[in-house]
């Protein structure tokens, strides 16, 4: 059980990092989050039933820790935290257009509420079903659908604002 659990968890790490990075918007904070989630999962290994979805179980743990952190941070500081500029994944003029467009989407996601961000990441990026998302987020499936619709609309709105507000609008035209 222990070895199987660990090996499955290792295989999941890239997806957990992707989910966490989408939630946090930061490479380092995402890895901190995944590390904390893995530690918690190892401590509670017996609560996971072999044969059931480990990814859903882990997404739930990641999400729970992240929500706890957000709440703690809200108490500590109300100020908006700036992103670490060192985490850009594109460098150089050659990839400028790509970097900007990727950044535009990531930036738009970063401006969503935590609830909207997580529902988009779970369904659009991780590909979990509405039912599984409802279980992970512990909400009714109707809430998942309405939250998802609002998140998608908000994402488009943010992209539109950004397009009107900076040079992205001129790229490719």
């Amino acid at each position: 059980m222990d070895a199987l659990f660990r090996s499955q968890l290792v295989a999941l790490l890239p997806r957990l990092r992707r989910f966490a990075r989408g939630l946090t918007g930061s490479v380092d904070r995402a890895d901190d989050l995944v590390q904390a989630a893995c530690e918690r999962a190892l401590a509670r290994m017996e609560q996971w039933t072999p044969g059931t979805r480990l990814d859903s179980w882990m997404f739930r743990i990641v999400r729970t820790i992240w929500i706890d952190e957000l709440r703690a941070r809200a108490v500590r500081e109300r100020a908006h935290e700036q992103e670490d500029p060192g985490e850009r994944i594109f460098d150089g003029e050659r990839h400028m257009e790509t970097r900007l467009t990727v950044e535009a989407v990531r930036d738009a996601v970063a401006h969503l509420s935590p609830e909207q961000r997580e529902i988009l990441l779970l369904i659009a990026v991780e590909g979990v079903s509405y039912k599984e998302a409802a279980e992970i987020m512990d909400v009714p499936i109707g809430t998942v659908m309405s939250r998802l619709a609002r998140a998608r609309a908000a994402l488009l709105k943010h992209l539109e604002r950004r397009r009107d507000g900076d040079k992205i609008v001129r790229l490719g035209q």
Partner: peptide
């Protein structure tokens, strides 16, 4: 929109997992 989201967030799937995450899992 969905395709753009995936493209924007898929980088971790192609990155090496840091040792600090792998080591505790053996």
């Amino acid at each position: 929109t969905t395709a753009a989201l995936r493209a924007a967030f898929n980088a971790p799937l192609n990155e090496p997992v840091p040792e600090r995450l792998l080591a505790p899992l053996g």
